[in-house]
Nucleic acid binder design. Structure first.
Lengths: 230, 230
DNA sequence: TCACAAAATTATGTATACAAAATTAAAACG
DNA sequence: CGTTTTAATTTTGTATACATAATTTTGTGA
């Protein structure tokens, strides 16, 4: 029998996936800080599962680089050095640049409209001094560009690198001039998108990421990362 | 007590790491073909381990994307579509380009000398029609460039994408003109390296990867991927 | 012979049990 | 007291056991 169309297979969420997602979130939100140990007994009690599925989840996160497992000494949240952060921005620059090159010629009108809407909302947040809102819309714009690039490998690669460094959302306050620079670059991105100019969008995004990298380097120089307890 | 210098920590290879490495190799060599099921009982018998560590290894490979786990239906080697292969080449192009940009200004004389040696050996292989030898030296050259780029994130990202598509080493014979093109591009790479010209090396590598992508697209068009059994 | 249903088998998912290593606490010694 | 040894406890690593879902085999009826 042929498969019926329009029937979406039921998403069976497995315990494994749930555990991985939960742990990932705990790490991303800093509840489990970089360097902190993952005690199996405690986590099992919290999640109310046995050690078997928990350990499988930990192994998955370790393969992603979010967790480090030392033989006979258990798992701990991966620490991220300043070098690693800056390195990641460099790689991210290449990925965003590629995403821009691919997205510009492929983006649809509705997708572009959505980005414009987020851009406008982002400006409002900037005017209102709403940093969280700003970051949220900013994030959505970059997501949309990667979405439009329509390359699953590119997307998953980006996701992987992103996850490894977001757990330290930089508490640092964005400077006003840095903020202006970022906005100006975003304006250029919209321009390039409207012109469907891939090379231009790619260049802007590479420059954009390089600005961000320099900002972060600057912040880190002034205020190093907090000690990452063992 | 301060740590003594010159003491390298012993590399304790864990069963988990061994299992992951072994499975990865079996997949890369095609012993476990794309789409084939990973029967836990059989694998446990082969490796002479219980299901617990084996399953943890499978979860790790699943997180890397080398294996797909379907709830209550077990794991199977990930299949790779033609689209995914071509997508990967696109992403790899951006990564190699970045590696080139970083490597050229950073490469040391010994590193450069090693690449020159591999290049010469590669030419010999080409003259002798030794395709395997050619690929081996070719691989070493690209490895060296990434090494010289000195960015761990970039390296691990490359490794991840590479692993997912090498399991299908293209049986396709490289054409003579394609081979010439590749060699010419490699000559340019040496030139850019000698000049420590990052932009140039990046550009050559991007072009090089694009050539490879087009070659692969061509091969795939002529001879589609074999069916990937369930 | 084919289609379908039911039972038997096999495989996976989770929990628990036991062994070994690491950590912590206690004891012995200077 | 501080340091080192030794014992106790905890934690991790692996094996096994049991529950449940999936698959295969067998059986039944038309």
């Amino acid at each position: 029998m042929d498969q019926l169309p329009d029937i979406v297979p039921i998403e069976r969420r497995s315990l494994h996936d749930d555990l991985v997602a939960s742990l990932r979130q705990l790490i991303a939100r800093g509840v489990l800080a970089p360097g902190s140990k993952l005690n199996e007994k405690d986590l099992c009690a919290s999640f109310n599962v046995s050690r078997t599925p928990l350990r499988e989840a930990i192994r998955a996160l370790a393969a992603e680089g979010l967790v480090v497992v030392t033989p006979h000494r258990g798992a701990s949240v991966a620490t991220v050095s300043e070098d690693q952060i800056l390195e990641s921005f460099v790689v991210m620059g290449a990925l965003e640049g590629l995403a821009g090159e691919l997205a510009a010629p492929r983006i649809s009108e509705p997708q572009l409209a959505a980005i414009r809407a987020d851009h406008a909302a982002m400006l409002d947040c900037r005017a209102a001094g709403d940093l969280d809102g700003y970051y949220a819309h900013n994030r959505r714009i970059h997501d949309a560009i990667f979405e439009a690039a329509d390359n699953a490998t590119l997307n998953s690669t980006r996701q992987l690198i992103f996850t490894r460094i977001v757990n330290l959302r930089f508490i640092a306050r964005i400077g006003d001039d840095e903020w202006s620079t970022a906005i100006a670059e975003h304006e250029e991105m919209l321009e390039a998108l409207a012109e469907r100019d891939g090379a231009k969008l790619g260049a802007v995004l590479r420059r954009h990421l390089d600005s961000k990298r320099r900002q972060v380097a600057h912040w880190l120089a002034r205020q190093p990362l907090p000690d990452q307890d063992p």
